[in-house]
Amino acid sequence: MKMWLRLYMIFFKIGLVTIGGGYTMLPIIERELVVRHRLAGHDAVLDSFAMAQSIPGIVAVNTATLLGYRIGKTSKAIACFLGVITPSIIIISLIALAYGGASRIPWIEKALQGVRVAVLALLMVTVWRLLRRTVRDWFQAAVAGGAFLALLLFPVSPIAVIVGGGAASVCYYRWREGGSHAG
């Protein structure tokens, strides 16, 4: 089998069996790529996963692209990235087409009302856990709180908040490290 097709199918399977994305994908990538197909080493997978988080975009897609490049340059990278997104496109297209009609059926409407509360609870717990894991100094606390308040109180676009916060972050940490070198 051609290498690009093989990689496309491996990442199609990875996309298909991962529900939720992000960290749930890592053990599945290791099992398929390192153990079963022996196309990459354990370190390559971990390095790519870490690198993917430093790059804008979707961690799962960036990881697939970085691993594909390591295995066989640009063409294989594209095969991996397309493979990992194909299952989503097929499955969600089917569900989204059915959703429009189904959401008007009374009992499904009630079920969805309950589902929305579950989603809210899941997201609230996620935010709490992220805060505890991510916020390590007062500047980070200020940036997280400032971003929330800016969006809540002013008609400002999230992109402007990200650009402003990113610039402030580079300035602050550069200044602080500069200060510590001098002192």
Binding site: V143, A144, G145, V170
Partner: peptide, 12 residues
């Protein structure tokens, strides 16, 4: 900074 900022965005 961005990792912390993203938590604020998710909270919103």
């Amino acid at each position: 900074g961005i990792r912390a900022l993203v938590v604020g965005l998710i909270a919103m």
